[in-house]
Simulated scan of single mutants.
Amino acid sequence: MGYPVIFQIERIYYPILAAIGVLVNSVAILILLRGNCGLSKCITRYLVAMSAADLLLVIINIILNRINNIYFPVTFLFITPVCALRVVLLLAALDCSVWFTVAFTFDRFVAICCRNLKARYCTERTASVVIVTVSVIGCLRSIPWYFLFVPSIIVGNVPWYCIQRPDYYTSTLWTAYEWIDSTLTPLLPILLILVFNGLTIRNILVANRHRRRLRGHRNGQNPTDPEVDNRKKSIFLLFALSANFILLWVTYVVHSLNWQVTNYNYAEKHLNGPVYVAQQFGFMLRLLSSCTNTCIYALTLSKFREELKNGLKYPFVKLCKH
Rank of each mutant, 00 (worst) to 15 (best):
L299W: 11
R165Q: 11
Y14P: 07
V275I: 08
L94Y: 11
A240F: 01
L64A: 05
V82C: 10
L173K: 15
I193W: 03
D95F: 08
L319K: 15
R218S: 14
V275K: 06
A111S: 11
T224D: 15
A84D: 02
N203K: 14
S26V: 03
F100N: 14
A93F: 05
L57V: 05
I153E: 15
N272Q: 11
N222H: 14
S51W: 01
G216W: 07
S128I: 01
Y276A: 06
S128P: 02
F239H: 00
Q8A: 14
K232R: 06
T183N: 09
N263G: 00
C113W: 08
L241A: 05
T80C: 10
A119N: 15
F245M: 06
A18L: 10
V195I: 12
I193Q: 08
L308V: 04
A111T: 12
Y71K: 03
L117R: 10
L188H: 00
A19F: 06
I16E: 12
L32I: 08
K313H: 10
F7D: 14
D167M: 00
Y252G: 09
L33F: 09
C42A: 13
A119S: 14
I153D: 15
N219K: 07
L188V: 10
V98Y: 06
Y146P: 00
V110T: 13
F281E: 00
F196G: 03
Q260M: 13
I60N: 11
Y14N: 13
A127D: 01
T44Y: 06
D181L: 03
L17I: 02
R120N: 14
R165C: 05
R215C: 11
L77D: 04
A111P: 02
T294R: 02
P189I: 01
S171F: 03
S234F: 02
I16M: 14
P15G: 05
L241K: 01
E227Q: 03
W259T: 12
F236W: 08
S302F: 12
T172L: 04
R212K: 13
F281L: 15
F316Y: 12
V98D: 12
A176F: 10
V150E: 11
L257Y: 02
C114I: 12
F236P: 00
Y177T: 06
P223V: 01
Q221P: 02
A52H: 13
F281P: 08
E268L: 12
Y266V: 09
F76M: 14
V74F: 09
L56Q: 09
F78V: 01
E227P: 07
G156W: 04
Y46F: 14
R141N: 01
R305S: 13
N116R: 09
L17V: 01
D181S: 11
A207Y: 07
R45I: 08
V130T: 04
N272P: 02
L237K: 00
D181I: 01
F316R: 15
V5P: 07
R231G: 15
S290T: 10
L214W: 03
Q221F: 01
L308Y: 02
R213T: 09
